[in-house]
Design a protein around this nucleic acid. Sequence first.
DNA 1: TTAGTTCCCATTTTT
DNA 2: TGGGAACTAA
Length: 763
Amino acid sequence: MTYLDDLNPAQRAAVLHTAGPLLVLAGAGSGKTRVITYKIAYLLDRCGAEASHILAVTFTNKAAEEMRQRVARLLGSESSTVLPWIGTFHSFCTRLLRRHIESLGQGYTSDFSIYDEEDQLRLIRACSRELGLDEQQLSPRAIQARISRAKSRGLTPADVREDPEWTSTPERALMLALFEQYEHRLRAANALDFDDLLVKAVALLRQEARLRARYRAQFRFILVDEYQDTNRLQFELLLLLAAREGSPGEADSERHVCVVGDPDQSIYRWRGADLQNVLEFERHFPNTRVITLDRNYRSTKTILAVANALIRHNTDRKEKVLWTENEDGPPVGYYPAETAEDEAEFVVERIRAHLVQDPQARIAVLYRTNAQSRLFEEACRRAGVPFRLVGGFSFYKRAEVRDILAYVRLALNPWDDESLRRILNVPPRGIGQKTLEALEHLARAAQLSLWDALQVAVIERRLPERTMESARTFLQLIGRLRACAREGTIADVFRMALYETGYVQALRERTLSSSDPLDAENRLLNLEELLSAAAEADERGERLREFVDRAMLVADTDEYDPTAPVTLMTMHSAKGLEFPIVFVVGLEDGLFPHARSSTDREELEEERRLFYVAITRAQRQLYLTHACARRRHGRLAPTTPSRFLKELPRDLLQDLSLTERAPIDRSAHNGFFDPSLAPATRLSRERGQTSSLHPQASARSPSRERGASSPFREGARVRHPLYGVGRILAREESGAQILLTIAFPGIGKRKFVEGLAPLEIIS
DNA sequence: TTAGTTCCCATTTTT
DNA sequence: TGGGAACTAA
Ligand SMILES: Nc1ncnc2c1ncn2[C@@H]1O[C@H](COP(=O)(O)OP(=O)(O)OP(=O)(O)O)[C@@H](O)[C@H]1O
């Protein structure tokens, strides 16, 4: 009974309740995730449940992995228990469809490709061009968002004809045509976009009664975390797998569905998350037991009071107040910086102070948009504070990685026109725009895939002689890659996609003679990493398709490393995480709440919930900062503090600009000051902040200090994973970065960015 | 016809 | 700040 003692009575009740539907509604940090985790352990440990009977759904892959580890820890090392399937809805659907999509009878094969947002945008552009639409008028992004929202509600182009969001638009005929074309092309490409993964899984289970019965019998325990942000289709899936069907022979009483969520933390309605899933849960699952948890274990009383005060400003909610036995803790730090650069300096200086005090501290900097990360990255780099950046530049979303993946995806699915289009002339092989257009024309006329069109064009000699040669070589290349995909290891396939395609060769040439050798350098490194990832997957015994699926489904947040001392990420990515120290930055109207979500009341309330999520990530110390002036479109413009700040209790906030010695090194900012800053300076003076608050504008020379603290001195020997051992020839500043020129024997000189490149000092 | 360059745009959040 | 489209040189 040991681990059950870690739970309070309400939590324990939730864990012990294992028959029938259960809805756990609870505030931030009240132990919802803990309930799910413990319940899995309890089911395996005490209820004799088989791992295969349990389906646990989390919001991200990373959360899934963490949960798996926690469950394993609870069960103890002595148990060699197989763990249940824990993952996101999307990965669950992927698995289901890889196995059964052919029964759906819509022409898909189990080799279907998964199209992520980038693929979708390319496809939409292609459709747009084909229909002769004006891109200015209908931005591909907007179309993609709208199509996705419709699909996540389970709507088809036919349904959408009646939908107000669509019929009210002036371009509705065009939009509709585009939607239809998009769907048509996806199907022809044997490809599913993210929404399709859910759409088709629902269709499959709805249509195939036997399959449904089989999975209903298997997954007798279904647990869903972050339930408040599930969409319509995910709810449908839940209904199909777990709602009472009334067919005899089914032991519904033994069936258990447990969903946990917090309506105040619903921050994904903009992409179709539907709170109706929570509100109507009890209607769809009769005899639901509802348990609420309101004791917070995460944050100090102060932080919690601030969070509670904020969220009360939402009208569209059920009142619920969290409490805690934790100590009061320090006041929430508030710092209005003059400029966004100053804000970053302040935050990083504070981080440094915290890390000196407690090297184990885990600190998060949370912002509204990914673009805001840059200043904090630079400030960290300048100060020598190591950090992890989550999101924005996911490894598997980098262009070079996507290019190589496109080769592999094309090898796996010959109908995958988007992948083919992507790499047909990458690296340049003389099959350019005109040839592609000719091929597309042929494909359309003969109802062929682009791949088949290419083959036909070669066989029937429909291309100019020069192009013929390249096209033939290309066809053979993909043919070999395909054979390799069938028989070789994952690493073999990627090696072939890297080298035989000439991709690496082209990049190597660019490291020698191009405008941006550093960029080419970094790309080569990323590809090297991709190859290692492939080799690791081989070692785990993974299949090529699993590896590629995982690459397509990785989310930004999946890169989060819980042991990193400093993490930079969006507030959205921070959902479900916790940190002793949290900085919420950029609290300015227009940024947060974002200008595009400030007018509509519902959208504004979602922004407020987002702030609530951000605040409640903090365990001990919370900082709120903003800048009084910030560069936008390159121009420095004054800003207004976020309206949300006014909603927080004054007495719990401490204005650090009044008491704090400003840790800002003025000398570093000379270049930034220009006349347009004047209003902002005045603004901050009115707050009692004067330039005398910056007495530290000492002669501290940042570059010298950096030089002294860095181990990367000229003459030092370093090891690089790709090039081996070399010697540092030069170390120079270039903007915010420091460039190292390193000579490798037998290879030559290479340039790297200090702190970015995987360099290791050899003493 | 292709490849490289310049210019110009818009710019939230993400499974 | 970067990606994409239009433009231009080979
Ligand atoms: N009964 C308990 N005793 C001690 N600590 C607890 C207890 N319940 C939860 N905690 C701790 O409180 C913190 C928050 O728990 P958890 O992440 O499960 O909450 P949550 O409700 O999922 O949070 P959020 O909704 O903010 O994601 C964790 O650090 C967890 O270990």
